[in-house]
Every structure is written in C-alpha cells, then in structure tokens.
Write a protein that binds this DNA or RNA. Sequence first.
DNA 1: GAGTGGTCTAGACCACTTC
DNA 2: AAGTGGTCTAGACCACTCT
Lengths: 236, 236
Amino acid sequence: MPKYKIIYDSIKNRIINGEYNKNNNQLPDEISLCKEFNCSRMTMKKALDLLVLEGIIFRKAGHGTFIMEIPSKNKINALDNDLTGFSKTVTGKASSKIIDFNIIFCPKEIASKLNIKENDPVYKIIRIRYIDNNPFVYEKTFMPTSIIDGLNMDILEGSIYKYIEEILKLPISSAKKILRADKSSELDYSYLDLSKDEPVLEVEQIAYLKNGKAFEYSISRHRYDKFEFTSFSVKH
Amino acid sequence: MPKYKIIYDSIKNRIINGEYNKNNNQLPDEISLCKEFNCSRMTMKKALDLLVLEGIIFRKAGHGTFIMEIPSKNKINALDNDLTGFSKTVTGKASSKIIDFNIIFCPKEIASKLNIKENDPVYKIIRIRYIDNNPFVYEKTFMPTSIIDGLNMDILEGSIYKYIEEILKLPISSAKKILRADKSSELDYSYLDLSKDEPVLEVEQIAYLKNGKAFEYSISRHRYDKFEFTSFSVKH
DNA sequence: GAGTGGTCTAGACCACTTC
DNA sequence: AAGTGGTCTAGACCACTCT
C-alpha cells in the first residue's frame, strides 16, 4: 500500500472520529502534517486530494484545510461510498436469490457495450436482492467468460466483486452509470412486489478493469421507495 | 491558468480530434509528452490524472496510456460533462419559465442543508425548463441572499451559474446529489404534462463554493422519458 | 532487459487570506 | 508580514509488462 494511501486512511479515520472538530473544523497545516507523517509535501497533497474528491474536506488557498460540513446526521453514510462512487441509503439484512444463471451467445447491443464480438460467450445472471426479506432490486448482469472465468452458484450467492478481485486477482478500476426513472413492468410487479403506478429507478452500468477491458454490463431496477443514489462531484 | 490545465485541455482536444487513434489508441509515453510540452513528469501526471478521472484515458503500469473505448456512438456527449459531473442526454432548443420568484424566511429543513439559521432570508425560485417547447423539468431552488445577492428576472431567464461565477466572481467548487424515482404528483401532472402512472426522476442537490459555503439547495423533478443522468467514477 | 507507469523526495516560487 | 495552500521541478527508485 502506497504511503499516500496509508496517510489518507489515517486522516479519514481521524475525521470520522471527530479528532479535528475544534477550531472551526480545521486540519493542521500541510507542513505540520508532513512532519507528523514523515512525508514530503507532494505526498501529503496526494493524500488530501483524495479526501477532497470524496467531499470530506475542502481547502481555502491562503487560509487552511477544513472538514466539509455534512448537513444530514448520517455522517457514516455520507462517508461510506461504495467502490463505484455511489452509496446506498438502505440498511438491514441483505440476501439474494438467483433467478437465472446461464452462458449465452452475447446479443449484439450488449456485445457493443462490452467491446466484444457478437455471439461471444457471456454469463447471464439474473438476481433479486432483498433487505430484511423485502425485495428491492432486480438485476440483470452480463460478463464475458473470456475475462471472468469459473463463476458458480456459490460465488453468486456471495459477492461477485470479491471473487473477481480476490480470487481472480483482476483489479477493478472504474464504472460508467446511467440512471433513469421508469414505469414498472410485469417483471417488476412480480419480482419487486410493485403495483402498476409505482415506478422503478433503473441503473445501467458498464464496469471496467484496470487494463481497460469492460468486464460487466448490468441493468438493475430498484424499488422507488427503497433506494436512492448519492453522488459527490468536484469541479477541476 | 496552471500549466497542467493547459496541457490537459490540449491533450483532451487531440483525443477528441482523433490524433491518437493509431497504435491501439495509445498515447505517447509520459517522458516524450514531458519533452513535447516542456514540463516535469509530475506536471504531466497531474494533467493525465484529470483525463483518467473523466474516463477519457486509462493507464496500464508497465505498458502505456490508452484512450478509453467509448461503446456508444455519442462520443461528444460522453466527453461533455457539466460542471457537476453529470451530463444530459437530451438535446434541442432550451427555454424556461419562471413560476415563482421571492425572498422568504428559510424553513428549518432547508436551513440545515444550507448550513444557515432558520428564518435567514433566501431566494426561492421555481422554474419550468423546456426542450423544444416541451416541459422536462420542474425545479425548486433556494439560495441564501447573504451569499448570492442581486438576483433578478433577467438573470433567472439566463444562467444563474454564469451570474455567480462571472458577475459575482464566486468560484463554484462542488455539488452533492441524491437521485431517486418517484410517483408523479398533482404538480407534476400540470407542469410536466404527466399522467398518473408516469414517474419522475427527482434530483436533490446541494452546491458549494470554493470557500466551503453551500450556496444552493434545489429539488428538480424530471420527466422520466426525457432525462437520464450519466456518471463516471474511478476507484482510488 | 528495455520500456512503461507509480511513488516519493526536498526544495523552490507564487497567490491568496488575514492581521 | 506571516501563514497558508497551489504549482512546478529534476531526479530517484520501484513494480509491472512484454519480448
């Protein structure tokens, strides 16, 4: 683990623990932090830059570095983004059910999103996820078998991402998402217990590995009353 | 304008113009780029880092820097994010109508989001926006008069953001967004021409200046069939 | 082994904020 | 004037990929 990452983790924990809550929520100046963490100023900047990107701190040139005021009470949630930049507001006991798990010839539209050839073999996975035994998302996922190999039911019951990163040792790097609202369909009525006038939040995602290859295309439909997505973005 | 920003703009333009489309979409190595742009390696890295954050390029350690394959055809759209990290997929002639424009005592819940005191004066703005004369979003905005001063109808007809940045010279830095689907309400039926079973995509936003102050709280409700949001995020 | 990106340093100068 | 963050440098060493 690089030094700037260790420093980032350490300072983030201090902020969460309220160690910098005095003096207008101000952090020590960069030079002092450098001395404390025994690093150069560039390395400290790299650590602090990550916190800025996450919306945890902000800097005022000529003034100092400050913790961002988090308006809502749920600080933990606001600080707890998942790997792709979104956090979920739902908490409870999670479980999932696999509706379909197969290898298919990749349809044309999906092949173009995954940058593979039409009819290349892909896993097709359909899952329902539950919170406290209530369904909240219907998820259709496609992954090229040439990249993600050896999937089975056991892995699907747990975390596919963990399998990819820890067993296959393929580093995940980024994701493109499109979010939209939609009327619910027959599938949504039955799988998500929705009635006709209740909408869904649909998320279309393409996820990439560090080597630039798309390894996942997914469409997920969330119950409108059980899910929201948060995002923080900084101008550069 | 800092050097790394100039280099970033320049390389971004080259990519858009297809100047790096040969050799597997590979860019020259960093040292060569440093020589060409007459800068240090750290500065070049800073420029390239911005392109990585935007999902325009990716790097393979020990291999090179490559342009990200953009699966859909609309390259321009994918490269043309707005200041808060989202881009819109709708195009056409834009216009807007102001439904309400007043100064009010700030309600408690909104004051807590803007980090101001209850009953502090805030502008309240309600606008409908149209594309090709079709309504697509109903937008309620609150701004503290202590920060954003001198708003009038002329400014509202144009761009509030332009007014803030160019006339008031207040640098905008970041925004927090929450996205959710919702059933349409009476207001939506009338202002967005929606029927009862048609949903909306609701976006709640708090926007911040460089000095860390929240200057805008807004709720906007978009027609489900006219709007979607895209986002790109990188693991760090 | 050659080439590439990833990290880190020690110091310099600048621009901005506050007193 | 003092203190702070913003930018930039020239070079070092490492880890990874490909042949």
